[in-house]
């Protein structure tokens, strides 16, 4: 047997309907490598509701429950309750939703499930807009980005509101475990999913999944773009475990401009706009480092 960097087991079959270079495909592939066959997942409307293929075929090789947009967390709670009633303890319950289905439409169900301390793993694959329906803005779209509902024209109507932070919202729920991840760091992502599976109670992960179609980037650069997002600290990688922050510091730091220049959705931004965003990103990073120092275990 050849030794592989991430588990060799495949639970997603090729032939799915994802775009070439899709980060979300890789995210699910890695998540199911980490969780294994003893998993039941629920999927609301999102890219992954379409990507498994047309009935009667499905590329996901574990039981999947396709549900309504707002019910990813609620249906996962239901599956867990049913398993508890049957006395089956060794099955992971995974809710797998996009950023719109998590942070806009599904947030009350998620908040409820976390507050009830339901033993589920919730993973949000964050491609920073409603990509499946045609790149509409979501509350997870970053400031300055072009989308079809924040089109860029003479009125400069790009998205002017900052991105909502799912992990911070979950940390405020006193969740046992929450973390950000990125598909460009598969070992780290697999480790975080496995750690989440080992903890009893609600777990929330948000994984940045570059989307070539919506970000107007080259498919072959998806992994590089994810890496640049982490290195520019636009997408900081950190974990919050019972309120204790652990931040992964990037080996080298790049500017926000280097990250933005890889994507067509930021093409319209001028030097001054990027400078403004750089300042916000730096301030957020400082704040995050402060949180890590403040919450460090003595």
């Amino acid at each position: 047997m050849v030794k592989t960097p991430v588990p060799a087991e495949e639970n997603v079959a090729p032939g799915h309907m994802g775009c070439p270079g899709c980060g979300a495909c890789l995210a699910l592939r890695l998540a199911l490598k980490a969780l294994g066959k003893r998993t039941i997942m629920t999927v609301p409307a999102c890219c992954w509701a379409v990507m498994p293929g047309v009935f009667p075929y499905c590329s996901i090789q574990i039981p999947v429950l396709f549900t309504a947009f707002e019910t990813a967390a609620a249906s996962a709670s239901g599956v867990r309750a049913a398993l508890d009633a049957k006395g089956q303890k060794d099955i992971n319950v995974l809710a797998w939703a996009g950023d719109g289905g998590t942070l806009d439409i599904g947030i009350q169900a998620l908040s409820g499930a976390v507050e009830r301390r339901d033993n589920i793993i919730y993973i949000c694959y964050d491609n920073e807009a409603y990509m499946n329906t045609g790149i509409q803005r979501s509350s997870s779209t970053p400031i300055g980005a072009w989308t079809t509902t924040t089109p860029v024209g003479q009125t400069r109507a790009w998205k002017s509101e900052p991105k909502k932070s799912g992990v911070e919202i979950m940390a405020a729920h006193r969740i046992p475990y929450t973390a950000t991840a990125c598909v460009s760091y598969p070992e780290d992502f697999v480790k975080k999913v496995q750690k989440a599976a080992s903890i009893v109670g609600p777990k929330y992960l948000q994984v940045l999944s570059p989307c070539p179609a919506g970000w107007k980037s080259d498919p072959e650069r998806s992994i590089q773009i994810g890496r640049l997002a982490v290195e520019s600290t636009v997408w900081p990688m950190y974990e919050v475990e019972d309120g204790v922050y652990t931040v992964r510091k990037p080996a080298k730091k790049v500017s926000v401009k280097d990250y933005f220049r890889t994507q067509g959705r930021f093409r319209h931004l001028g030097e001054k706009d990027i400078e403004e965003i750089q300042k916000t990103v730096d301030a957020e990073w400082e704040l995050l480092l402060k949180k890590e120092t403040m919450t460090a275990r003595k």
Partner: peptide
Amino acid sequence: KFCPDMSIRILEDGTGVEIDYDHCKGCGI
């Protein structure tokens, strides 16, 4: 590790990889 289409197979003897041209979408990652 990075193939989003599960189209790269590691050869059994560990001497390299093989590409599944039936499913590879040619993203170039």
